[in-house]
């Protein structure tokens, strides 16, 4: 178990990043991440070495994180609007100095587009392409069959591409319109996406 600190160092971005997409407050994400590692530690200290060796750590950790984040959201003490919160909302934990305004703008755009996806697609796409898990790891994290997860990711990405193209098309003639104009249209994009999927 002396490998534990190394494990935390190695997986903290995955665990924290995933938690962060589930809660509007960075401090809550840090709590969830901490609790995830504590649970992992307790579980691991009770497992025999063969079982630890056979564990797929990333998928397993992601699953713990998701469970904790969901419980927290469900218990309501910590409201999680998270992904589709207003883009102009000041986030005190935004790593501002390291990111240029343009990068922040890009991240906000993708956050909004991702938030427009139906739940299953959003979760699968997030784990695969934001957190960088493999398909089997995503399947493990979500507790869903591999085939389902793959198709959810593909469909989700396709929807995102369409939404992105639609966005780009709408942005083009109105580049000088200022922020308010585009901000008003944004919810419409997300809604249209959702209706397209639920056919």
């Amino acid at each position: 178990m002396s490998a534990f600190p190394r494990m935390v160092a190695h997986h903290q971005d995955l665990v924290y990043g995933l938690a962060r997409r589930w809660t509007p407050r960075a401090a809550d994400a840090e709590d969830i991440a901490q609790e995830t590692f504590l649970r992992a530690y307790r579980a691991l200290s009770g497992y025999p070495p063969e079982r630890i060796a056979a564990l797929h750590l990333r998928g397993w950790l992601a699953r713990i994180t998701l469970n904790l984040a969901r419980n927290r959201a469900r218990d309501g003490a910590h409201p999680t609007a998270a992904l589709d919160e207003a883009p102009d909302r000041a986030d005190p934990h935004d790593p501002g100095p390291e990111r240029s305004a343009e990068q922040r703008e890009t991240a906000l755009l993708w956050r909004r587009l991702l938030a427009g996806l139906p739940d299953h697609y959003r979760q699968a796409v997030g784990l695969r392409h934001v957190d960088g898990l493999s398909y089997p790891e995503v399947a493990q994290a979500l507790g869903r069959p591999l085939g389902t997860v793959k198709s959810d990711v593909h469909r989700g990405v396709r929807l995102l591409r369409k939404a992105y193209e639609a966005e780009a098309e709408m942005e083009r003639p109105m580049t000088r319109d200022g922020d308010t104009g585009t901000a008003e249209r944004r919810p419409a994009t997300a809604m249209r996406l959702a209706s397209e999927v639920s056919w």
Binding site: D13, A33, T106, W110, G126, V130, L160
Partner: peptide, 20 residues
């Protein structure tokens, strides 16, 4: 799309490992 999604990655704050 894939590059865009990668911009959503958020590194853990430096304090996390110490807290754990």
């Amino acid at each position: 799309v894939l590059a865009g999604l990668r911009t959503l990655r958020e590194p853990a704050p430096p304090s996390l490992a110490g807290r754990v």
